[in-house]
Simulated scan of single mutants.
Amino acid sequence: MTASDAPAFCVHCGQPTSGGTDHPACHNPRTALEPPRYCTFCARRLVVQVSPLGWTARCSRHGETASR
């Protein structure tokens, strides 16, 4: 991953992160269990599907991610 590929936005609120670290306002135990809502690269709203086995989140520009 290069510097231009580094995540620049919080996955929970879509606000810019500072220095590529977690967004401090959204770093709490409750949000750690939630699926992402915003793309980390472009801050677009994600299409999220939650199932009993996990979740998938899709950005129209950067593709799909899934829970592990």
Rank of each mutant, 00 (worst) to 15 (best):
M1C: 06
A3I: 11
A3L: 13
S4L: 10
S4Y: 06
D5R: 11
D5T: 10
D5M: 10
A6I: 09
A6W: 04
A6N: 04
A6K: 07
A8N: 12
C10E: 08
C10F: 02
V11D: 01
V11Y: 00
V11A: 07
V11T: 14
H12L: 03
H12A: 11
H12M: 11
C13P: 03
G14P: 02
Q15P: 00
Q15E: 15
T17M: 13
T17W: 03
T17P: 08
G20M: 06
G20L: 06
G20C: 07
G20W: 06
T21V: 14
T21P: 00
T21F: 13
P24K: 07
P24C: 05
P24T: 02
A25E: 12
C26A: 08
C26T: 05
R30F: 13
A32R: 15
L33W: 05
E34V: 01
P35C: 04
P36H: 07
R37M: 02
R37P: 01
R37V: 01
C39L: 03
C39E: 00
F41Q: 13
F41E: 11
F41S: 12
F41Y: 09
C42P: 04
C42H: 01
R44Y: 00
R45L: 04
R45T: 12
L46C: 04
V48D: 05
V48Y: 11
V50I: 15
V50N: 14
V50R: 15
V50H: 03
P52R: 08
L53S: 15
L53N: 11
G54Q: 04
T56I: 10
T56N: 02
T56F: 02
T56Y: 02
R58K: 10
C59D: 07
S60F: 00
S60W: 02
S60R: 13
R61N: 12
R61H: 14
R61P: 00
R61F: 09
H62Q: 07
G63C: 06
E64A: 12
E64Y: 01
T65R: 13
A66N: 10
A66P: 01
S67E: 14
R68N: 13
R68A: 15
